[in-house]
Design a binder for these strands. Structure first.
Length: 589
RNA sequence: UGGGCGAUCGUCCAACGGCAGGACAACGGACUCUGACUCCGUCAAUCUAGGUUCGAAUCCUAGUCGCCCAACCA
């Protein structure tokens, strides 16, 4: 696996979690013969997101740390929501994240026949019955949180009748909703899940794998525990909302003679600030066109993050760092950003790109001449090699790198000031040319030929080093600047839960007039670079073409200058408000 | 108003009866041909009230607050 170094570095910093402690203890007590066997059990009804990555890392990670195994199992018991597109994307995502289920790819639908037999056994034991109440009636009979439920009038059907009915449910003589098979437990249980839960329903839907072979499908609570048991799972790890289901999980396995009885353990699902993590909510973003599909680089899906430029190891490191607990919390988006920067800083070649260009003319550089300079791909990793950087009379620099009337702390280019062009020359601004409306169209400079390569032989210093490209040699490109999808820290709890009301209008800015250094010609889809001083960028896998490259910004570099600017703006706003308050007070008097 | 679960720096996770620790964030500094990286430093927490104990974040009791549960979804 690549980046083992960074992973183990994180593993060293990370300490145990409560699930690991349980597993550790089980192994040392020789429970399950000291074996550890986990599984990642997605329903193929949507794309995987970073929250699933947490579960994947947990399940596969635990297995590998204890020399155990982890299965990939599709929990595909609801044909009306599931699709092969999702099955395919999930497999490719798990693989890409760096995990291997080897030959243990399973589907709950593989067990339909076995599950049916288990249901029959339950009926024979008098522990399940066919109920012919309607959905609404079942609801009424269930009672409420404070009141016990009532027994269904069909609860005491004979075993023979139940067997006959259940068999005919399977053959398709009934319509959807006519009957369900229910576990016979306790209609007065304080746990609603134990009030004779439905375990089989009629659904005349085409299943993505079994086609029209079945018209009855087992419910989650019946399927999951038995699937775990069939696969010999030792630790069945799931999220907190299934805590109330554990008694049912255990009940089914206790009532039936099964290969083993796995232990269900629940942990808190992942929340990230400025982000929505639920397949249902993400599906809505896709369906309503707020984003361009499941793999839109703004989506917290594995596919989206991959396209955005996240590396698999950065996601794995993030998952290690956030830990595993039972407390529902929200992880700071900054931690995710830190994790990508940390990884990409080590692995990305440096290049120069000018995103918002302004023309610079070097007046004392000979017309028509050009030369090749050289820069390392990584200042701290010589093994990445060097690339050529053509230099000529006309260049582009970043608009933000020039100010005609700079504030004190700004030390980039301004009239009369000398700065360094990275790996090239010192230049001094001599003149600024503007159009009628006052926009700067051209900056004129002189260069010092003695500073070739970027160092002054006389030892004089400059305060700033700037990136640049040669106008005639640069490659034109489209660059997509991504920012957080939501402007609220917790999109789900604001605006009465309508998270689409706080979509960030600036989550995507498309820049079509960008210039890249020529070494970027033919950059492969998904390859990642650091555009020096700007951020990490990745060749878009979908829209980039050789003649019209498209780059996605994964994340900006940390930027203390931007921070200073932001603070200044904030302070100004505060001052304005203070003044206003003062005035209000005065006028009130 | 029944049941289940949870509560530790701003955020996330540790500490399993014995010095509350790490990471991110924030702040300050050093370094710098990226205002990046790196390095150093600073700030900062046990929900409340009782109890057990030589000793409590940890155990007990009561309370407070938060999350989940009444799909023929998973």
């Amino acid at each position: 696996m690549q980046n083992e170094k960074s992973n183990s570095a994180v593993a060293g910093a990370q300490s145990g979690n409560f699930i690991r402690n349980i597993v550790e203890q089980d192994v040392s007590n020789n429970k399950n013969d000291g074996q550890v066997h986990t599984r990642f059990p997605p329903e193929p009804n949507g794309y995987l997101h970073i929250g699933h990555a947490k579960s994947i890392c947990l399940n596969f990670g635990l297995a590998s740390d204890f020399s155990g195994l982890c299965n990939l199992r599709f929990d595909d018991t609801n044909p009306s929501k599931e699709d092969v597109e999702y099955v395919d994307s999930i497999q490719s995502n798990v693989k890409w994240l760096g995990f291997d289920w080897e030959d243990r790819l399973y589907y709950a639908s593989d067990y339909f026949e076995k599950l049916y037999d288990y249901a029959v056994r339950l009926i024979k034991k008098g522990k399940a019955y066919v109920c012919s109440l309607s959905v609404d009636e079942i609801k009424k009979y269930r009672g409420s949180r404070t009141e016990p439920g009532q027994n269904s009038p069909y609860r005491d059907r004979s075993v023979e009748e139940n067997l006959d009915l259940f068999e005919r449910m399977r053959t398709g003589v009934f319509e959807d909703g006519d009957h369900v098979l229910r576990a016979k437990i306790d209609m007065a249980s304080p746990n609603l899940n134990m009030r004779d839960p439905a375990i089989y329903r009629i659904k005349k839907d085409n299943h993505h794998r079994t086609g029209n072979k079945w018209c009855i499908y087992p419910m989650y609570d019946f399927t999951h525990c038995l699937s775990d048991s069939i696969e010999g799972i030792t630790h069945s790890i799931c999220t907190l909302e299934f805590e109330d289901h554990r008694p049912l999980y255990d009940w089914v396995l206790d009532e039936l003679e099964t290969p083993c009885h796995p232990q269900q353990i629940e942990f808190a699902r992942l929340n990230i600030s400025y982000t929505v993590l639920s397949k249902r909510k993400l599906l809505k973003l896709v369906e309503e066109g707020h984003v361009n599909g499941w793999d839109d680089p703004r989506m917290p899906t594995i596919s989206g993050m991959r396209r955005r430029g996240f590396s698999a190891s950065s996601i794995r490191n993030f998952c290690d760092r956030i830990g595993v607990g039972k407390r529902e919390g929200t992880v700071d988006l900054a931690l995710l950003e830190f994790s990508v920067r940390e990884d990409l800083n080590n692995t990305s070649p440096r290049v120069m790109a000018v995103l918002k260009p302004v023309k610079v003319v070097i007046d004392n550089y000979p017309e028509g001449r050009s030369e090749e300079l050289e820069g390392p791909y990584h200042p701290e990793d010589a093994s990445m090699g060097f690339r050529k950087l053509p230099f000529s009379k006309t260049l582009y620099i970043e608009q933000d790198d020039f100010m005609e009337d700079p504030p004190k702390k700004f030390f980039r280019l301004s009239p009369g000031r000398e700065v360094r062009l990275r790996y090239a020359y010192f230049i001094t601004c001599t003149d600024v040319i503007k159009d009628e409306s006052g926009n700067i169209t051209e900056i004129h400079c002189t260069y010092d030929p003695a500073t070739r390569g970027g160092d002054a032989p006389d030892g004089r210093k400059v305060k700033a080093t700037m990136h640049w490209v040669s106008a005639e040699h640069a490659i034109k490109a489209e660059v997509r600047l991504y920012d957080r999808l939501f402007s609220e820290l917790n999109p789900e709890s604001s605006n009465d839960g309508d998270y689409t009301a706080c979509l960030n209008p600036d989550s995507l800015k498309v820049l079509t007039d960008c210039y890249l250094e020529p070494s970027l010609a033919g950059a492969k889809p998904e390859s990642r670079y650091q555009f020096e001083r700007l951020g990490y960028f990745c060749v878009d896998s979908r829209d980039s073409k050789d003649d019209t490259p498209v780059f996605n910004r994964t994340v900006t570099l940390r930027d203390s200058w931007a921070k200073i600017t932001k603070q200044k703006v904030l302070r100004q706003e505060q001052n304005v408000q203070k003044k206003k308050k003062k005035q209000d007070t005065i006028s009130f008097k």
